[in-house]
């Protein structure tokens, strides 16, 4: 319903929109800028915007002092592992609900989604106790399982909405031509669903990457991902703005870059499919 406007009005709107955008982006921009300052410049008065001595010392310090790459590896394994595993399990389930619906499909979907809405604190103790029992506390395997379980409803829900957009006539046509179920899913459904699967994977990777509640509660030194690492770094109240910013920048950079190159999927994913 984009409204028609005059061109000067359009310029004004565009400038205003980008100004608001800059305002919204400022905290992220500031983190990135600060990461290239020395500790002294980071708290300089008046604040330094672009004209300071750009330095990489914080990045080097963060790696040397606390082995940044260990946490990065943990983040990659935990977010990637839980997303891929979750998607693999969710695809057949979503396929089943989208193309072979039964009377109970909506109920099943709502029950699944309801588990995502319940607060994580409600299941923290049992998972914690089970993890102690199984020796999964502070392991990457444990976090992969928990995050997969926690995000599964969203994966199934998103895949379901994407699959629903694929006309079932196409699948029927393939079946008429004698395609087996396996080749129907593998060669007809999957190629058509790839954009949807990609959005789902992207969103879940982001969710798992950002996860703080479970990572803080279930990891200590060994399996801690970036979120836990940064949370621990910031506890001695704001003493190292520049180093903290460097660690933060490295933690958000993948998301910013990924998000920029897949804007459509990001928007659709973050709004749970409401925006197409």
């Amino acid at each position: 319903m984009a409204r028609t406007t005059t061109s000067s009005r359009k310029t004004f709107n565009t400038v205003l929109a980008w100004s608001i955008g800059l305002l919204i982006f400022f905290p992220i921009l500031w983190t990135i800028l600060t990461s290239f300052k020395s500790e002294g410049q980071a708290i300089a008065d008046p604040p330094l915007f672009f004209f300071f001595d750009w330095t990489l010392e914080n990045y080097i310090a963060v790696q040397e002092r606390s082995d940044y790459f260990k946490f990065l590896t943990n983040s990659l394994i935990i977010a990637g592992g839980s997303t891929l595993l979750g998607t693999l399990i969710a695809i057949p389930a979503a396929w089943s609900m989208a193309f072979v619906p039964s009377r109970r499909t909506k109920d099943i979907l709502l029950w699944m989604l309801s588990t995502k809405m319940l607060p994580a604190v409600g299941v923290l103790y049992p998972i914690y106790l089970v993890f102690i029992e199984l020796g999964l506390l502070d392991t990457r395997t444990g976090l992969v399982i928990v995050l997969m379980l926690i995000n599964m409803p969203i994966i199934v829900w998103m895949l379901y909405t994407y699959f629903r957009e694929i006309p079932s006539e196409i699948l029927e046509a393939a079946r008429m031509d004698g395609a087996s179920l396996r080749s129907e899913i593998l060669y007809v459904l999957t190629p058509m669903a790839i954009p949807g699967i990609a959005s789902t994977i992207l969103l879940n990777f982001i969710l798992a990457w950002n996860e703080a509640f479970w990572t803080l509660n279930l990891t200590a030194a060994k399996a801690a991902p970036l979120t836990a690492f940064i949370a621990s770094y910031s506890s001695p109240e704001g003493l190292f703005y520049a180093k903290l910013s460097a660690a933060s920048t490295m933690a958000i950079a993948p998301i910013l870059v990924l998000g920029w190159f897949s804007q459509k999927q990001l928007v659709r994913g973050l709004t749970f499919g409401a925006v197409k």
């Binding site: 919204i24 600060t34 933060s248 998301i255």
Partner: peptide, 17 residues
């Protein structure tokens, strides 16, 4: 996308700024 960035990045991280 820029308007959505705050939602896409972890607050544990942007809390610094």
């Amino acid at each position: 996308t820029i308007y959505l960035y705050p939602m896409a990045v972890s607050f544990v991280v942007t809390g610094t700024a």
